[in-house]
């Protein structure tokens, strides 16, 4: 399918191009909704659709007013501050605990390994609405409902499975004889860990941390239940905005968030290539 041989029959030729066309349409379906909000966020009107001026590419059809609104409106600024305060703390917690546990899990002899793994992965599997409901009940009993730490702890718990999965994946390819080699040359376990093991698993740790960050940064269900007005995050503000159709500022926020995802995606891609290079595979 990758390239058409010169002896292909007309039917094969037709199918080859039809298939490419179908795939093109599906790619369009995947990417179009994300791209369409970028120009719409510069709309000079308070509409969610293209105005005639925009279609004619006249400058008066475009403006930064929705971005201005985002950066001046206290509601949005409060939400941005909360998001920026909650996500990094949750990420640090999730990454520290997750990395340690992943190193433990990748040892050769771990008792009850599959049972432990099932418990640690469960926050990723259980539907968010159920986690949110359970946390709402339980955290109100212990007085964490409606507090900053309540949301942080919940988000950290939701982020840990991603850290475990990514770090375990880098450890699978880890050659244990490297540790023995370091030890035979006189390095103590701590030195071995920081000088030999850590540089090799760093890509896994960083991409796990990115996953944990985006999990917390995008999360809305748990924060809707666990948070009070003081913990309103960006996704929460977007959610209420969408439900009540308040303003196209949402599109400006959405565009900024797309930009964040592009940055995260590029960092991850760089990390992937680096780890493949380190392991002697060709970067692909």
């Amino acid at each position: 399918m990758s390239s058409l041989p010169p002896y292909a029959s007309p039917l094969q030729r037709t199918w080859h191009y039809t298939f490419r066309f179908i795939c093109g349409l599906i790619f369009f379906f995947l990417i179009f909704p994300i791209l369409v909000i970028l120009p719409l966020s510069f709309n000079a009107q308070d509409f969610f659709t293209f105005t005639p001026e925009m279609l004619a590419l006249k400058p008066e059809g475009f403006s930064f007013k929705h971005y201005e609104d985002f950066f001046t409106n206290p509601d949005w600024q409060q939400a941005l501050t909360n998001s920026v305060l909650i996500a990094p703390t949750a990420t640090i917690l999730a990454t520290t605990f997750g990395t340690l546990a992943a190193i433990g899990l990748s040892q050769q002899h771990v008792p009850y390994r599959s049972a432990i793994m099932a418990i640690l992965i469960s926050p990723m599997i259980v539907p968010l609405i159920i986690s949110a409901a359970g946390m709402y009940f339980f955290y109100s009993r212990v007085g964490l409902q409606g507090t900053y730490w309540g949301v942080v702890l919940a988000h950290a718990a939701l982020g840990t499975p991603f850290v475990i999965i990514t770090v375990t994946a880098t450890l699978v390819g880890f050659d244990r004889s490297l540790v023995r080699a370091a030890a035979s040359m006189g390095a103590n376990p701590v030195t071995t860990f920081f000088k030999v093991q850590m540089p090799l698993i760093v890509p896994g740790v960083v991409s796990g941390a990115l996953f944990a960050f985006i999990t917390s940064f995008d999360e809305v269900v748990v924060v809707l239940f666990l948070g009070s007005a003081g913990q309103k995050t960006l996704p929460w503000q977007m959610f209420t905005g969408l439900r009540e159709q308040i303003s196209p500022t949402i599109l400006a926020v959405a565009s900024l968030m797309v930009a964040i995802s592009i940055v995260l995606l590029s960092v991850l891609e760089m990390l992937r290539r680096r780890s493949e290079r380190l392991r002697g595979l060709t970067p692909g």
Binding site: L93, F97, G98, L100, A101, I103, G104, L105, Q107, H109, V110, P111, I116, I119, L120, S122, P123, V126, I130, S131, G134, M135, Y136, F137, F138, Y139, L153, A154, A156, A157, L158, T160, I164
Partner: peptide, 20 residues
């Protein structure tokens, strides 16, 4: 191995499994 896993296991049991 268990000592390395323990902090996370306790954390997840308290913040996630107990609520469920």
């Amino acid at each position: 191995a268990l000592l390395l896993i323990a902090p996370l296991l306790i954390f997840v049991l308290l913040t996630f499994a107990a609520p469920i």
